[in-house]
Simulated assay, not measured.
Amino acid sequence: MNTAEAVAKVIEDLRKQADCSQVHLSEATGIPRTTLQRRLDGDPFKVNELDAITKALGVDAAAVWSQAALLTPS
């Protein structure tokens, strides 16, 4: 798993834990749903997208990176 895929997995897990649909997350962040879906499929997130998502989910971006690092080979 590469870094982009790991970040996507962490975001997807957090989204599900928050019981937040992709449509709702898209609306809350202003990220088009199709773009959000591509990112969750492993395309790298842009910094502003990750910032908007973590704010919408109420999590710290650094925590997302830390969790993603645990999923990637060293």
Score class of each variant (00 low, 15 high):
residue 1 M to W: 12
residue 2 N to K: 05
residue 2 N to W: 05
residue 3 T to E: 04
residue 4 A to I: 08
residue 4 A to Y: 04
residue 5 E to R: 06
residue 6 A to Y: 05
residue 6 A to G: 09
residue 6 A to N: 11
residue 7 V to S: 02
residue 8 A to D: 04
residue 8 A to G: 03
residue 9 K to G: 02
residue 9 K to P: 01
residue 9 K to H: 05
residue 10 V to F: 07
residue 11 I to A: 06
residue 12 E to V: 07
residue 12 E to M: 15
residue 12 E to R: 11
residue 12 E to F: 12
residue 13 D to C: 13
residue 14 L to T: 10
residue 14 L to Y: 12
residue 14 L to C: 11
residue 15 R to H: 10
residue 15 R to M: 08
residue 15 R to C: 09
residue 16 K to I: 05
residue 16 K to Q: 11
residue 17 Q to E: 10
residue 18 A to T: 01
residue 18 A to Y: 01
residue 18 A to F: 01
residue 19 D to R: 00
residue 20 C to A: 02
residue 20 C to N: 06
residue 20 C to K: 09
residue 21 S to A: 00
residue 23 V to T: 09
residue 23 V to H: 03
residue 23 V to Y: 05
residue 24 H to L: 00
residue 24 H to F: 00
residue 25 L to M: 12
residue 25 L to F: 03
residue 25 L to K: 09
residue 27 E to F: 02
residue 27 E to V: 07
residue 28 A to L: 09
residue 28 A to G: 05
residue 29 T to L: 03
residue 29 T to D: 14
residue 30 G to T: 04
residue 30 G to E: 09
residue 30 G to P: 11
residue 31 I to K: 04
residue 32 P to V: 04
residue 33 R to W: 05
residue 34 T to P: 07
residue 34 T to D: 11
residue 35 T to E: 06
residue 35 T to G: 10
residue 36 L to G: 15
residue 37 Q to N: 15
residue 38 R to N: 09
residue 38 R to T: 06
residue 39 R to Q: 14
residue 40 L to I: 12
residue 40 L to A: 13
residue 41 D to Q: 13
residue 43 D to C: 01
residue 43 D to F: 01
residue 43 D to K: 03
residue 44 P to M: 02
residue 44 P to F: 00
residue 44 P to T: 00
residue 45 F to T: 03
residue 46 K to N: 03
residue 46 K to Y: 04
residue 47 V to T: 15
residue 49 E to Y: 11
residue 49 E to Q: 14
residue 50 L to I: 04
residue 50 L to C: 11
residue 51 D to W: 14
residue 51 D to H: 15
residue 51 D to N: 15
residue 53 I to G: 11
residue 53 I to L: 14
residue 57 L to I: 15
residue 57 L to K: 14
residue 59 V to A: 05
residue 62 A to K: 03
residue 62 A to V: 07
residue 62 A to C: 02
residue 63 A to F: 02
residue 63 A to N: 05
residue 65 W to Y: 07
residue 65 W to H: 04
residue 66 S to Q: 00
residue 67 Q to P: 01
residue 67 Q to K: 13
residue 67 Q to L: 10
residue 67 Q to E: 15
residue 68 A to S: 05
residue 68 A to R: 03
residue 68 A to Q: 07
residue 68 A to V: 03
residue 68 A to E: 08
residue 69 A to I: 00
residue 69 A to N: 01
residue 70 L to H: 11
residue 70 L to E: 12
residue 70 L to K: 15
residue 71 L to Y: 10
residue 71 L to Q: 08
residue 71 L to T: 09
residue 72 T to S: 10
residue 72 T to Y: 08
residue 72 T to C: 08
residue 73 P to G: 02
residue 73 P to Y: 10
residue 74 S to C: 03
residue 74 S to A: 11
